[in-house]
């Protein structure tokens, strides 16, 4: 029972990340008709916002270790700690949540620049060309990050107060051994809140209504005198912010490295396809579904029956769903069927 509970939590947590990335992918695809392979790079850039904020907050005074003569070895003490003592330490400790504030405007700007500067020139080109150019863009972004931060993952810890585990077993009467990291629970709530916010925005605002209408019939909305393209550019920016926030909050779980976006991108595309191209609800549902399935497939009891199932489960489920429902779980007719 407790093992199942923990694997459900793991699945929801992983699914939260998949869903956030897939949501942005679907938004961009549904509005602009672009298959954006650079979307994973936006997730990675979000995580590196956290790294950058941490690096800025920990700019340090360097005290040289005189016992080392062949190269410069030094012990660092952040200026914030020197100037503000415990308050400075607390600011550094909270660098990941603080970086959310920075990530939102930066990711919005990156998204807008990406759409206006490159992707809009490919709206009328084939999907294959769109994939090639966005994939190329992803590689360029990765290499830029690598040149600044190196290839190794960079530790970005959660605030000390939530870096340990919550005794959920004690709360639920399942025993002391059932624990779950606080930060992962925060991530789960956070992803739920962001998904809710995006849906609410699309559902309850005039802007969202126009976007939804444009997703269904861009031409008619345009004929009504509404500048759909302008709104879709903003949607691209919002998708970039969602991916970026997913990345920032994931940094304490997975120390960021330049390639992390690509690792998530492939899975997120599977999520989009399983959910149904162009379906926002499908992307979210498939994200959580595949996350949970992946967690259960990794249980020793399951692996004992089908060895290696944890490595193929997502693709296996994708194949079965596409065979049974070619448009995915909640796919719309006519999307990518030309």
């Amino acid at each position: 029972m407790d093992a199942i509970l923990l694997q459900i939590l793991n699945g929801l947590d992983k699914g939260g990340a998949y869903a956030l990335i897939a949501l942005g992918l679907t938004l961009v695809f549904g509005t602009l008709g672009v298959v954006n392979f650079a979307h994973g790079a936006l997730f990675m850039l979000g995580a590196f916002c956290a790294v950058t904020v941490q690096k800025i907050l920990t700019i340090s005074m360097k005290v040289k270790d005189e016992s080392i003569t062949f190269f410069d070895a030094y012990k660092e003490q952040p200026y914030l700690e020197i100037w503000f003592g415990d308050f400075g330490t607390a600011i550094i400790d909270w660098s990941v949540p603080i970086s959310i504030l920075l990530a939102m405007p930066i990711m919005l700007l990156i998204g807008l620049a990406m759409e206006r500067g490159l992707i809009r020139h490919f709206y009328k080109r084939s999907h294959a060309e769109q994939i090639l150019v966005t994939f190329g863009l992803a590689i360029v972004l990765q290499e830029i990050v690598k040149s600044f931060f190196g290839a190794n993952p960079i530790p970005s810890p959660a605030p000390g107060i939530v870096s340990g585990s919550a005794p959920i077993g004690v709360l639920l009467g399942l025993g002391e051994s059932v624990v779950y990291p606080w930060w992962r629970m925060i991530y789960l709530l956070f992803s739920g809140a962001v998904i809710f916010a995006v849906f609410a925005f699309l559902q309850f605002t005039t802007f969202g209504m126009v976007v939804r209408a444009g997703m269904h019939d861009r031409e008619t909305v345009g004929l009504l005198g509404i500048d759909v393209e302008h709104r879709f550019t903003i949607v691209f920016g919002i998708a970039a912010v969602v991916a970026g926030l997913a990345g920032v909050m994931y940094a304490p779980i997975l120390p960021p490295d330049y390639h992390m976006g690509m690792d998530f991108l492939v899975l997120s595309f599977v999520v989009v396809v399983v959910g149904g191209m162009g379906s926002l609800g499908g992307a979210v549902a498939a994200g959580f579904l595949l996350g949970i399935l992946q967690s259960f497939a990794s249980m020793n009891e399951v692996k004992a029956i089908i060895p290696g199932i944890d490595q193929i489960i997502i693709y296996l489920v994708a194949v079965i769903i596409i065979l049974v429902r070619p448009r995915g779980l909640m796919g719309r007719k006519g999307v990518m069927e030309d």
Binding site: D13, R184, M299, Q311
Partner: peptide, 22 residues
């Protein structure tokens, strides 16, 4: 107790770590 194989580059190992707890 157990020796569990994990895929190279798994990223998130939570599903392999939680069984260790119990």
């Amino acid at each position: 107790t157990a020796a569990v194989r994990t895929p190279v580059g798994a990223g998130d190992f939570s599903q392999y770590i939680t069984p260790v707890l119990n």
